[in-house]
Design a protein around this nucleic acid. Sequence first.
DNA 1: GCTAACTTGGAATGACCGTTCCAAGATAGG
DNA 2: CCTATCTTGGAACGGTCATTCCAAGTTAGC
Lengths: 199, 199
Amino acid sequence: MPDVKHFDPDVALDQVVRLFWERGADVTGIAEVVQATGLSRSSLYATFGGKERLQAAALRRYLERQSRPVFDALAADERGLPAVTGFFERLVAARCTGEHARWGCLVTNTHTGAAREAPEVRQVLDAHHAALRAAMRAALEAARNRGQVRPGMDLDAGAETLALLAYGVNLRSRAGADAAELLAGVRAVLDGFTRTEER
Amino acid sequence: MPDVKHFDPDVALDQVVRLFWERGADVTGIAEVVQATGLSRSSLYATFGGKERLQAAALRRYLERQSRPVFDALAADERGLPAVTGFFERLVAARCTGEHARWGCLVTNTHTGAAREAPEVRQVLDAHHAALRAAMRAALEAARNRGQVRPGMDLDAGAETLALLAYGVNLRSRAGADAAELLAGVRAVLDGFTRTEER
DNA sequence: GCTAACTTGGAATGACCGTTCCAAGATAGG
DNA sequence: CCTATCTTGGAACGGTCATTCCAAGTTAGC
């Protein structure tokens, strides 16, 4: 017989994601969350718990809605190195232009924040890293099967490299890095991974 | 005929650097700075100005005292790729063990913080990136002169790569990344840069 | 030892922090 | 329509934020 929620928690969480992503969770007060979502403090706390739990929820949402689809597409892409190149080209474009320009990546940003040590948060950071690495690894495997990759290459190490590179791109983009420079940095790695005929 | 300072501003700033580095500038209150330095609020504000100017000063200090010496040593190292390898080995060791373990890099951490858009701060971030890239570029040049590098490589792009990689290492280390994985990621890049005989 | 110039400790400021609480409102089953 | 149960708006909480201010203390030149 109870009353029912007067709002959609899913929509609200998406708005929180945008807020934390653009402004940074640490420097965003509950008052701003209230304003952005239109919820009252009561509803917020009743639905999501305190700020730390809200931040963890937003982070999980970001991973599922923003990162995961891209990772899955990369892992399923059979083209090999061109798939990796495409991934980074889209990444740099998204980080430097469009509606999310200079927002960086919420997961990357969280690495340096205050919540980084909270278990609920750390778990998402690690899950993100594992998923990114796995996708890179899958793409590199496809590349090797197509003979695109230099002989004897360690695919696990290469996947870690590409993941670290993505973090670097995300980080620098938030501080205004030049898109062309980021792309050049990406290209140099992939050139090094590529099998060369003459040499 | 005035009174003279009862403390050494240089020592105080070093203590602030440690505090901001370990805990994060955004979440560190002035009260903590007062406690760590032993100064009074009056002396703090009279000497360094407000928090934003203090943060910029600490960042400059970090760049000069922590980063610059390492960058200079790298740039002056004539060994080529082994110099780069050594740089990253020491970096990973410093980030994952010892008294600064899991602190990350103050400059890297600042990329995602609230002060990242303040001109005084942005300037240091850019200076850091330029110095790091230049040092990497110098090391790669030495490597090419010694025939260690694969033919036709773009040294500027390679330097950007290595800089981005360093940011990735710094970032992930602050969230507890495994040293061995980080080193593997580094190795894969350098292997790709290396000239190979047979192939 | 006097005084002008500066520093220092510490109280006070108003704004904002995350969180709690409660009275009033809304809902659905009986 | 009634009532048990949940939601909602909004006030209120104690704490902390960065910053300011001032009276008291300290110094160096005269």
